[in-house]
């Protein structure tokens, strides 16, 4: 047993962090926010070239040939940097959907009853079957053209400025069946959990940095136990979620993935809340990045596998 990152995994994580810092650092992130452009097609292609979408495709099919453990490291970094766009759906569609692997196509996801994120910018839609996340084969997932769905969809004023949402009617006609069905929802839940983990770790850093710099009563506020203990609690949540997410990536077990999603959702949302609190009045401003983490964390909590569904999966596993 060696449940630690390998040297290759560390290098991969460092490489992605460097790529995202260079291509989607804070200034670019804020500029994208102000411009209101959702998916940056040029960046999307760069992510494709870097192997973000083709990571788990076999090398014979033009992929990188890596597995879920490497994928969660990538998506953790995406979550840290607030990288927008339907990254998970496009990653899952790499292979079956033409152009997804290279970042030429933007693929969004349609999960019945949920608003569709980035429908306006998507080329194709991954339509999830009504699987229950317990590992039983979902009814065949399908792929549809985004344009036809968009015709009968209404834009929603999204709570997350980086994630445009569309309300769609129930899909009337079936699309093209997807060969990789059965695992889409659980893999999507795992990758969303990885994004939540990245966000939770990042808000911990933001809170610690602010608590060390901001002075009141003649001392850094991080020297006061009331603030210090909030920060410690954030680290504990993030680190427990980290172990849950990494282990679920290694085992790919649906029950373990449900646990990882549950804990990572909790860590991302509660850490963003505590980060906001540590930032005081600044945390309530548009200028601060804290709200961007919180809003995205809220959205992701409702996607792929909700807390209620995850808890039922985990309860069912006890009997």
């Amino acid at each position: 047993m060696d449940f630690q990152l390998s040297d290759d995994q560390r290098a991969l994580r460092a490489g992605v962090r460097e790529l995202l810092a260079g291509r989607f650092g804070r200034d670019r992130m804020r500029a994208a926010l102000d411009a209101g452009t959702g998916v940056d097609r040029a960046l999307w292609r760069e992510l494709g070239e870097a192997g973000f979408f083709a990571l788990r495709l076999p090398e014979a099919e033009g992929g990188v040939g890596l597995g879920l453990p490497e994928a969660v490291l990538l998506f953790e970094e995406a979550g840290r940097s607030l990288l927008p766009g339907p990254l998970i759906a496009t990653h899952l569609a790499a292979g079956p959907v033409k152009g997804a692997a290279q970042g030429e196509a933007v693929v969004a996801v349609l999960d019945a009853g949920q608003p569709v994120a980035h429908l306006g910018e998507a080329d194709a839609l991954l339509v999830l079957g009504p699987g229950d996340g317990r590992g039983v084969p979902e009814e065949s997932a399908t792929v549809r053209e985004a344009a036809t769905v968009r015709e009968a969809a209404d834009p929603v004023r999204s709570i997350d400025p980086f994630t445009p949402l569309w309300r769609v009617a129930e899909p009337a006609e079936a699309g093209e069946p997807l060969p990789r069905d059965g695992r889409l929802r659980t893999e999507g839940a795992l990758l969303a959990a990885a994004e939540q983990l990245g966000s939770a770790a990042r808000t911990t850093e933001m809170a610690v940095q602010h608590a060390g710099a901001r002075e009141q009563f003649g001392a850094p506020i991080g020297s006061f136990q009331a603030v210090k203990h909030l920060c410690a609690g954030m680290l504990v949540r993030a680190e427990l979620a980290r172990c849950a997410v990494y282990a679920a990536a290694v085992t790919a077990d649906p029950v373990e993935i449900a646990g990882a999603k549950l804990l990572a959702d909790d860590a991302a949302v509660r850490n963003a809340r505590d980060c906001l609190q540590v930032h005081g009045g600044m945390g309530f401003t548009w200028e601060s990045d804290v709200h961007l983490h919180l809003k995205r964390a809220w959205l992701r909590s409702g996607q792929w596998l909700t807390a209620a569904a995850a808890e039922e999966v985990l309860a069912g596993n006890l009997c």
Binding site: M1, Q4, C243, A247, L263, A315
Partner: peptide, 27 residues
Amino acid sequence: RRGLGRLNAEFRALWRLTQWNVSEAQR
């Protein structure tokens, strides 16, 4: 029932955290 499910996630993760810490010490 859901509370027990959440505890299942909690203790599974604590077991993984144990394996993580042990692996770190081993290295």
